[in-house]
């Protein structure tokens, strides 16, 4: 029941973040949605993710505010015509309808399949020596995933440096 309340709160915060005019208020509403997600992770028994989400949310808000502050927002004049909005909403409604049909086929909430995870839970402590099974799965059983994701983060670092570089820009002019 409390999960429903938190999810509805997150949806309202997301709608506010999308629809509000002021950019800084919009960023704050996004962070409200993120903190709701952190609470939902705690209720769903995922404390690792709750810690990570909380910390990431703080850094994300700092970056977004730093990026949008002092920008004189040139009043985005709404040239949206009615037909376009209606078409978008209609396609989203169709998407929701088919998602309803698809989500009915999933196993019920609270009864996952857990065929592979049973093995992890029963033998994880002896095989890896780590009582925290999330760390054990992320770094030992599924270690290649962690390796590739570290590569992705490193690529993101290099990409940001390449976008924001100053060398070579002067020579072009």
């Amino acid at each position: 029941m409390e999960l429903h309340i938190i999810l509805i709160f997150m949806i309202f915060a997301a709608i506010m973040a999308v629809e509000i005019k002021d950019l800084i208020s919009s960023v704050i509403a996004l962070s409200a949605a993120g903190l709701g997600l952190c609470l939902a992770f705690l209720i769903l028994k995922a404390p690792n993710l709750a810690i990570t989400q909380l910390v990431v949310e703080i850094l994300c808000v700092i970056v977004l505010i730093r990026g949008t502050i002092n920008k004189d927002l040139p009043l985005v004049k709404d040239g949206r015509w009615l037909f376009n909005t209606i078409a978008t909403l209609f396609s989203l409604a169709v998407l929701l309808l088919f998602s309803y049909l698809a989500l009915k086929e999933l196993p019920n909430f609270g009864a996952p399949l857990m065929r592979v995870s049973q093995e992890y839970i029963s033998t994880g402590l002896e095989k890896t020596g780590s009582p925290n099974l999330v760390t054990a799965v992320a770094l030992n059983f599924r270690g290649y995933d962690a390796l590739a994701e570290a590569a992705i983060i490193f690529t993101a670092i290099i990409g940001t440096l390449a976008i924001a570089r100053k060398i070579g820009k002067k020579d072009e002019e």
Binding site: P47, N48, A50, I51, T52, V55, V56, I58, L59, G129, S130, P131, N132, V134, T135, A136, A138
Partner: peptide, 18 residues
Amino acid sequence: QGHVSPGGGFAGGIIITL
């Protein structure tokens, strides 16, 4: 303490950055 209690390399790294 990432292998005993909740936490780990990603969260700890971001806290150090903060």
